[in-house]
C-alpha cells in the first residue's frame, strides 16, 4: 500500500458517498446514469468474487464489501424511491432499440458488455472462470463511465454533486496510474499489462471531462460542455 493507491481508494470511497448524499439530499437521481451504475455493479460483483476464496487484507475485504453494497444501494434507489426522477431519455445509448432488432438492454449489451466479455476470453491471466470474469471486470470498469459521460454530453451541463462524483472517480483512476508507476519501481516482479492498458484507457476517457471541469472551476463559471 502506498499513498497514491490509498488516496485513490479514498477518492473512490468518497465518490459513492457524494452520489448517495446528493440523491438523498435532493430526493432525486436526475443526471445520474442508471446504465453506468448497473455496469459498475456488474464490475464489482465479477471482480470481487475472490471475497469467497482469497483474503488479501481486512482493508481490501471491507472496501470490496462497501463498493458492492454502495453501488447496489444506488441502483436500488434509482429503481425504487427515486425512479420518477430518473432521466431515461438522456440515458439512452446510440444503439438502443436497434441492436439485432430487439434484445433487451440493446446498446449497453451490444456495445459495452459483449465486447468486454469477448476481449476477456482473448486476453486474460488464465483460461478459467474466475480469471475470465476478473479480466472482464477490468475491461468493463474501463468503459462503465461512458453512459454517464454520454448523459452529460446530452444535457451539456451537470449538477454540482454529479460533477463532483465524476471528478472523484476520474481522479481515483489517475492516482491508480501513479500507484502503478510507484509499484513498478519499488516492487519486484510487479508487472500487469492487462490492468495498465485498461486503466490508461479508462483514465483517458475522463480527459475531456477534466478539462471542462477545470475551466469551470477556474473561471468560477457553470460547467458547460461545448457543442
Amino acid at each position: 500500500m502506498n499513498i497514491f493507491r490509498l488516496s485513490g481508494d479514498m477518492l473512490h470511497l468518497i465518490s459513492f458517498l457524494v452520489l448517495m448524499y446528493r440523491m438523498r439530499g435532493q430526493r432525486s437521481c436526475r443526471g445520474v446514469s442508471l446504465k453506468s451504475q448497473i455496469l459498475f455493479l456488474i464490475v464489482f460483483c465479477c471482480r470481487y468474487l475472490d471475497l469467497f476464496f482469497s483474503f488479501v487484507s481486512l482493508y481490501n475485504t471491507m472496501m470490496k464489501i462497501f463498493f458492492i453494497s454502495a453501488t447496489a444501494t444506488i441502483v436500488y434507489w434509482m429503481l425504487t424511491k427515486y425512479r420518477s426522477s430518473y432521466d431515461m431519455d438522456n440515458d439512452k445509448l446510440h444503439g438502443d432499440g436497434s441492436f439485432m432488432g430487439h434484445l433487451p438492454p440493446h446498446g449497453v449489451l451490444g456495445y459495452i458488455i459483449v465486447p468486454c466479455f469477448l476481449l476477456a476470453l482473448i486476453w486474460n491471466e488464465g483460461f478459467e472462470a474466475f480469471e475470465i470474469l476478473w479480466a472482464f471486470s477490468i475491461y468493463l470498469e474501463a468503459v462503465a463511465i461512458l453512459p454517464q459521460l454520454f448523459m452529460l454530453q446530452k444535457t451539456k451541463e451537470g449538477e454540482a454533486f454529479t460533477l463532483l462524483y465524476i471528478f472523484c472517480v476520474g481522479a481515483y483512476r489517475g492516482l491508480y496510474i501513479i500507484n502503478w508507476i510507484y509499484r513498478y519501481f519499488t516492487e519486484k516482479h510487479y508487472w500487469q499489462p492487462l490492468v495498465w492498458v485498461s486503466g490508461v484507457v479508462q483514465t483517458l476517457l475522463y480527459a475531456d471531462f477534466f478539462y471542462y471541469y477545470w475551466i469551470a472551476l477556474r473561471d468560477g463559471a457553470k460547467f458547460q460542455l461545448p457543442g
Binding site: 481508494d9 475472490d50 482469497s54 481490501n60 491471466e125 500487469q192 490492468v195
Partner: peptide, 10 residues
C-alpha cells in the same frame, strides 16, 4: 502470486 498482481488492488 496474488500479492504481487493486480488482484491485490481494488
Amino acid at each position: 502470486s496474488y500479492q504481487n498482481s493486480g488482484k491485490d488492488e481494488l
